[in-house]
């Protein structure tokens, strides 16, 4: 076990180096737009680490993370605009609300095997968007809401430059990576690994499928909601289409898929690759924006599924993942064990 000790020392050395690099980055990066991209990479990665808990570790394909992203975003915005609270308070409330939705929805549909969970997450995001469009007095409806900039104000989380936002985003990213790491080595992580491989076998060793899956869904929702809250605090603008479209859900999922699921660095790598790319295509195809990025996503998805089904992090490391080959591993019919 001496090996693992030097390994650990090497790792912590690497971590210190990384932290220094990351903290000094905004001092070096002079171009405002680059810093903006770095911030976007960070919060989309956070959302994607969230997806990875349910979609990666638990192997339950969620196509509705936009619902949680929106709840976080609208809670932060509404807390500030309507109730004159710090958006940070709103962010926490949003995380709580997202957790409740995940708990409720998860308890209902994670019981079912097969595509029902995926479909219900898709539907949940649609319902959330319809509600956001409907309750105009709170949400501003389709026009959305602008958070006016009133000068430096710590409690309103308003800063004159992007640097403070960058540090907040990186802190959230660190929290997300830490969460992913903790999940991967925890009891829950091993339970999810078992469930993803074979639900019957998991049950046969005493794992409560529902409890483990719902926990994963709640953690997933919390991280994604946190990313949504940060998004509105940073952008100071919100509307139902930019936070709650299927495009957002797909983007969050694709980041993890491209980078590599169930990996401490996968979603970050995915965001580093995808966010600049989507910004580029968005700028290039500005006139047909929404459609264009979905086309680009589809092409990326096809390429990844064909050539790097385990995500690029594993191409870099030349190490195959465990069962990342199919998009949704695991679900076996309820009856299949009876004939086994």
């Amino acid at each position: 076990m001496a090996d693992s000790q030097t390994e650990a020392r090497k790792r912590s050395g690497l971590a210190v180096l990384l932290i220094m690099l990351v903290s000094l980055l905004p001092l070096v990066v002079q171009h405002g737009y680059v810093l903006r991209i770095l911030i976007m990479i960070s919060y989309f990665a956070v959302a994607s680490y969230g997806w990875d808990v349910i979609g990666g570790y638990a192997g339950q394909l969620s196509l509705g993370q936009a619902a949680f992203f929106s709840i976080g975003a609208y809670a932060a915005a509404s807390a500030y605009l309507i109730w004159k609270l710090s958006p940070a308070v709103g962010a926490l409330a949003g995380v709580g609300l997202a957790a409740l939705l995940a708990l409720g929805l998860g308890s209902l549909v994670l019981r079912l095997r097969g595509p029902y969970f995926t479909l219900s997450t898709l539907a949940a995001a649609e319902v959330v968007r319809i509600l956001l469009l409907h309750f105009k007095s709170i949400t501003g409806g389709a026009e959305g809401r602008v958070i006016p900039y009133t000068g430096f104000n710590l409690s309103a989380l308003q800063f004159a430059t992007d640097r403070p936002y960058y540090y907040i985003a990186v802190a959230l990213l660190a929290l997300a990576i830490w969460t992913s790491y903790q999940v991967s080595r925890s009891r829950l992580g091993f339970q999810l690994a078992a469930i993803r491989n074979d639900e019957d076998a998991a049950e046969s060793v005493g794992i409560n499928l529902m409890s483990a899956k719902v926990k994963a869904f709640v953690i997933s929702a919390c991280l994604t909601a946190l990313a949504g809250a940060f998004y509105v605090i940073y952008d100071r603008y919100i509307d139902p289409y930019s936070t709650c479209s299927s495009e957002v859900s797909v983007k969050i999922l694709l980041i993890a898929l491209v980078g590599g699921r169930r990996s401490i660095w996968g979603p970050l790598l995915g965001a580093v690759l995808l966010i600049p790319l989507t910004e580029l295509t968005n700028a290039y195809f500005a006139s047909i924006r929404a459609g264009a990025s979905m086309v680009v996503y589809s092409i990326i998805l096809i390429i990844v599924v064909l050539y790097a089904p385990d995500g690029l992090i594993r191409v870099l490391r030349r190490r195959p993942s465990r069962g990342a080959v199919t998009l949704q591993p695991g679900p076996k019919g309820r009856n299949s064990h009876a004939s086994a």
Binding site: A193, R196, A201, A340
Partner: peptide, 29 residues
Amino acid sequence: DFVARKGIVRTFQIERSFKDLTVLENVAV
């Protein structure tokens, strides 16, 4: 899962190991 926690466990006629976990991890689960 309840029965397993109570102390009766089984193997499957068509085996159901956790394919993407190592042997040690399978047993650890």
